[in-house]
């Protein structure tokens, strides 16, 4: 094993990790506004990829617009899901809401399977076609640059939203104390809807951006959702930076473990480290003392 190989493992880890990070951001945002884990998050990823390919291949829409359309449509699904399934549960009982998200996940998956079929779709063309970039013997796939760029934009954008805008402050207030936020005049229902819209958009972005390599299929949300969830927990469900750090850490762990130990134990090793971290730091790697902080 050479140093060059290690660098290649790191590049692969950061690339998978950025994908997990986008999913983890979705988990974090919904958790902040509702206090629950949204188990339908992986389905937004799946929808992003599926709708992107359908728009491009079946409707013949140019790549950029197909991708945007997929993200917008998935965002609409996220909003609808919140309005129809989450909002009617007025008391916000976390257990009930979690079960609703599990149900929503199964519903979205089944409907997609019946509408589109059981087989995987074709892949999208690369966003910027061309051979991979070689730097000092390490190969970087062009699409990885897109994944990293989008993840960076997402984390900066979300941080600015939370810190600088009125709406972001309302979201933060809502995460600290929902009743308190409502008492000072914040429309908490709107905040929850917005958080689902954002989470759906982020999931869809991840789904679209990876579909040049990974053929989308109706069941692909479950496994990636689990990775995103693990990344969010590892980061500590605290703020956007923590989610991204959790995602990248998980991706690096997986790839370095499979690079240096064995690919057989890839998921096992990542899981053991996750459990170890949670044992020492139950609030996650980057979670503050209080988990309610956004």
């Amino acid at each position: 094993m050479t140093g060059k190989d290690l660098l290649q493992f790191i590049v692969a880890g950061l690339s998978s990790g950025a994908l997990y990070a986008l999913l983890a951001l979705g988990f974090t945002i919904v958790y902040a506004s509702t206090g629950v884990i949204n188990f339908a998050q992986g389905e937004f990823y799946m929808l992003g990829g599926m709708l992107g390919v359908l728009a491009f291949d079946s409707l013949g829409i140019p790549l950029v617009f197909a991708a945007l359309l997929a993200i917008l449509a998935t965002t609409a699904v996220g909003v609808l899901f919140e309005l129809l399934a989450i909002r009617p549960r007025k008391d916000g009982d976390p257990l009930a809401l979690i079960i609703i998200t599990v149900g929503g996940s199964i519903l979205i998956q089944s409907l997609t399977r019946h509408a589109v079929g059981g087989e995987e779709l074709a892949t999208l063309p690369s966003f910027s076609p061309g051979p991979s970039i070689g730097i000092a013997g390490v190969t970087i796939v062009r699409q990885s640059l897109w994944i990293w760029g989008i993840t960076a934009v997402a984390v900066v954008g979300l941080t600015l939203l939370y810190r600088r805008t009125r709406f972001g402050k309302a979201m933060r207030a809502c995460s600290i104390d929902r009743d308190g936020a409502r008492l000072v005049g914040i429309d908490t229902a709107r905040v929850v809807t917005a958080s689902f819209a954002l989470a759906a958009a982020l999931g869809a972005i991840a789904g679209v951006v990876i579909s040049p390599t990974v053929p989308p299929v109706f069941y692909s949300g479950a496994s990636i959702g689990l990775k995103g969830f693990a990344a969010a927990i590892l980061g500590g469900l605290g703020n956007p930076v923590a989610a991204v750090a959790g995602g990248l850490t998980l991706g690096l762990l997986e790839n370095i473990a499979s690079g240096f130990i064995s690919s057989t134990f890839k998921d096992g090793i990542a899981l053991v480290v996750l459990l170890g971290v949670l044992f020492v730091r139950p609030q996650g790697l980057f979670g503050g003392r209080s988990r309610e902080k956004v």
């Binding site: 094993m1 050479t2 190989d5 290649q8 493992f9 590049v11 692969a12 880890g13 690339s15 998978s16 994908l19 796939v141 990876i210 390599t213 990974v214 692909s220 479950a222 496994s223 990636i224 790839n255 499979s258 690079g259 690919s263 057989t264 890839k266 998921d267």
Partner: peptide, 20 residues
């Protein structure tokens, strides 16, 4: 001899080992 899990999205690391 390398493996991956169903649902994995990237096999670059395994292929890097194979390349070498």
């Amino acid at each position: 001899s390398e493996v991956f899990n169903p649902g994995d999205t990237d096999m670059t690391t395994q292929l890097t080992k194979i390349k070498g």
